[in-house]
Amino acid sequence: MTTVKNKHTRILVFLVCIILGFMITMQLKSHNQHQTVAMQRVEDLTVRLKEVQADRDKIAKELDEYRAGRISGAAQKEMDELKARAGETALEGKGIILTVDDSKQAAKAGENKNLYIIHDEDLLRVVNELRAAGAEAISLNGQRLIGSSEIRCVGPTVLVNERRLAAPFVIHAIGNPQTLESSLELRGGVLENFKFWGIKADVVKSDSVVVPAFKGNRIFEFAKPATEKTEKDAAENKDTSKAKENDSGKTNAAKQGSAAANSNTASTASQQKNTGGAQ
């Protein structure tokens, strides 16, 4: 079987086999190593994720502590009130729940079908009416309406707080239930107009209406708090116009005195003339 003839050949075969064996083992080892590297990476990332999460929780807790520590008593109360006003907290109280849904009536031949469905404008009118009637907090399909909330038509849905809402619309409003209801049901008012087109509107008075907190994000990209100087400038402009209005004769010099301190010479002069004329 063996045809290896001389020593020279044997050594060469020996060497070649060493290389081969070496390569086989290296290949196997490397293969395992590559696998473990991938596994290690997963483990590393998992550990890091956990660390970062723990860090985040810790920092959030610290932030809460700082907030609690720095603001106390009256300031806290005021902040809570401002938050409630800004829509940061869910509110509860007496009010009404208004449900409006698209009309089920079939449009007559030649009539615009759009007249039978609810539009952003209808909702705006309802919301406006509610605000006029003294609603303190309003939500539309769970979206709290705040100062920057929009009610806008986007295709078949309505965009509120950058979220798409579809009919039926449920409006929760906190306020005097009687006032709210009657303001909506005024003759020639919003709901009567709805009825004409068959749009379903259902007002329910309730002792406990819950209006959720505002969940969108509000970031001032362009606006920033006005500095003292710009504020003063704005106040001055106002004062001059006020002073001119006062030319007609009412003397409230004592009240205006403080305002006159930071108004320009022209307005001061006119005020003096003013007071002089009255005397």
Partner: peptide, 18 residues
């Protein structure tokens, strides 16, 4: 033949130790 097998074994050992 025996040299080849021995060489292979040596190679494997070398690979493991490297």
């Amino acid at each position: 033949m025996i040299y080849a097998v021995i060489g292979l074994i040596f190679g494997i050992i070398g690979g493991v130790l490297t």
